[in-house]
Every structure is written in structure tokens, then in C-alpha cells.
Design a protein around this nucleic acid. Structure first.
Lengths: 151, 151
DNA sequence: GGCCATCAGGTTGTGCACAACTGAATAGCG
DNA sequence: CGCTATTCAGTTGTGCACAACCTGATGGCC
């Protein structure tokens, strides 16, 4: 009847609660490394793709410059990354790993396994659930662009 | 081999991205009502259960007083709720709806349907996905208590 | 070349989240 | 009864997220 406002029926709340719980699961592992969860995500992208512009990071992580700029500044202060404005296009800034940032990879290699174990998760369940979340995100994320086009 | 640090393999990132995308879906609907998503959640609990202590709200929404206290203060300023310290136990504070807060229910009755439509979701998919998220949250949330017990 | 729309990154302001801490009230136990 | 541990809200400080806005660089179009 479209009138069901019970909290327990809200998919969005389930997502919201699960996301926060998952991030909290990473906290005790990342804290000793001086990392927050979003900072860890930035490192994942840099380890995987190498030097990356702020815009590319934003596309990968679905974050805007308002979030990334101060976050990257903190990571630069911590000595994990460098930020250099590109000579061939002065609009964009290239983010690259320092020695320290690169070395950190070895110290987090075991993180996913540790977290998965803490969650008591099997590989199969995880993969399937992940796929469905990615589909959901894809379904609800572009609408913004669609709205802009239609307006 | 436990060495897979690719972003695309991370369930936690899928959760994180999906959660933010879902909350952003609510924004254009809630903004005209002067509500944020967490404030909307508080109203859901109050509409469903009536007067509720801050602690009960925290249990339902998995938020602590550090988050709820300022949030409820803002809702009180907006005239949506009242906060009264309980006479029979002066430690706890009872949150109750004002006329305005109660009346708002009518204006958001259509929100879940609107959002679901925007997401292009069928009922069945949603229910199943929600259940799996709730299970996941339950699996990874209690560990804190378990740690405390074992320490 | 000159002009304008677009793009990239940064800044500002608001509102969560969470850890760590404080202080008042209560419960429970000797 | 008195004392101690616990409970509950609230405060403080840090770090996201996001909207709105700003600035400078670039690309196209004439």
C-alpha cells in the first residue's frame, strides 16, 4: 500500500547499517597503520593502477573533490602520497605513491582475509552478494546524470 | 591467495558505495521536507514505536549518543521532537513527536515507493537482498561485544 | 587571436559517525 | 546505610560526505 514505513522493511537502512558495520570491522586493522577506511580505498586504487588523477580516483570511488581534496592532503602530510599538478594539463593533479605508501601494501596484504574471517564469510556468498550490490549501485547511481539530461 | 587487493573484489566497498548511492537517492525527496536521512530514520522509529529513549533509538539504528545527541537537538530546534528527562530514571531522556513531527508522516508515506521506483526495483529482489544484508550485519556487528568479553 | 562553455581541483559550511571522555543518576552488594 | 560499578546522555575532537561556490586552465568556435 506504499504505506509501509516500518524500519525493518527498508532496504536502504539494511545497506546503511551493514556498510557502517563493515567499515567498523576494518577500523581495528587499519587504525594501527594510521589509515582510515576511505584512505585505504585510495591506496587500493593507487596500488592497482599506479599514478592517478584526483578525478580518476573520484570516478573509481564515487567521491567528489570536496571529499578527496582534504583526504589526499592528510595522506600527503602523512607521507603516503605525493600530489603534483600535471604539466601537460594544469587543471589536473596526479596522485602518486611515496616509498612509504608503496611499502604499506605489504602490511595490508592480509587485511581482506583477516576481515573476511572476522565476518565469518564464505567466498561464494560474498561474491554473489557483492555482484548484486554492484548492480544495485549501477541502477541507482546514474539517475543523477539522467535527471540533468532530461531537465 | 589472500593477496587480492583489487578494489573490485571488495564486498565492503560494494556495500560502502551502494549505501551512499541509496542515501543520495533519498536526498532530493527528504530535502524539501528539511530532513536528512538519519533524521528520517529517527522519525520512522518514533512513528512505529511512539515515545522512545535515546538509548532505544541507538539500539534500533545502531548509533551512539555521540551521533544522536546533536542530531536530536537539531530535530528539536526544527520543532519535530521533544526531549524530556524521565522522572522515574533521570539518566534517560525520552524523545517524543510534536504535532509537526507526527504530521510529517503523511508527507513521507509515499517516499519508499518513490525511491523504489527511482531505483527500478522489484519487491522480491529487494526482500531477499535486505535479508542477506541483515544477516551479514548481525554476523559482523556483535564481534565487538565478543572481543570485550574475551578480553 | 578573442570569446565562451566546460572541466579539474579546491574551499566553505553543514551534518553525520565514531572514539574518548565527563558527569549525573541508579543499581547492587557487603 | 554506604560504597562502588554501571548506565545513560552529553561534549569534544577528528575525519568523512556532500552541496554550493570559486578559480584557473583548456578546448572549440568564430
Amino acid at each position: 500500500m506504499g504505506d509501509d514505513l516500518r524500519l525493518s522493511r527498508h532496504l536502504c537502512f539494511a545497506l546503511y547499517a551493514a556498510s557502517r558495520a563493515a567499515v567498523n570491522l576494518y577500523r581495528p586493522v587499519l587504525d594501527p597503520l594510521g589509515l582510515t577506511y576511505p584512505q585505504y580505498l585510495v591506496l587500493l586504487v593507487l596500488w592497482e593502477h599506479g599514478d592517478t588523477t584526483v578525478k580518476e580516483l573520484g570516478d573509481e570511488l564515487m567521491l567528489d573533490s570536496g571529499t578527496l581534496s582534504p583526504l589526499l592532503k592528510r595522506m600527503e602530510s602523512a607521507g603516503l602520497v605525493r600530489r603534483v599538478r600535471r604539466p601537460e594539463d594544469e587543471r589536473s593533479v596526479l596522485v602518486s605513491l611515496t616509498e612509504v605508501g608503496t611499502a604499506l601494501r605489504g602490511r595490508v596484504a592480509s587485511v581482506p582475509a583477516t576481515v573476511a574471517q572476522a565476518a565469518g564469510l564464505g567466498e561464494n556468498d560474498v561474491g554473489d552478494l557483492r555482484e548484486r550490490l554492484v548492480e544495485l549501485t549501477a541502477a541507482i547511481c546514474p539517475p543523477r546524470a539522467a535527471e540533468r539530461r532530461s531537465s
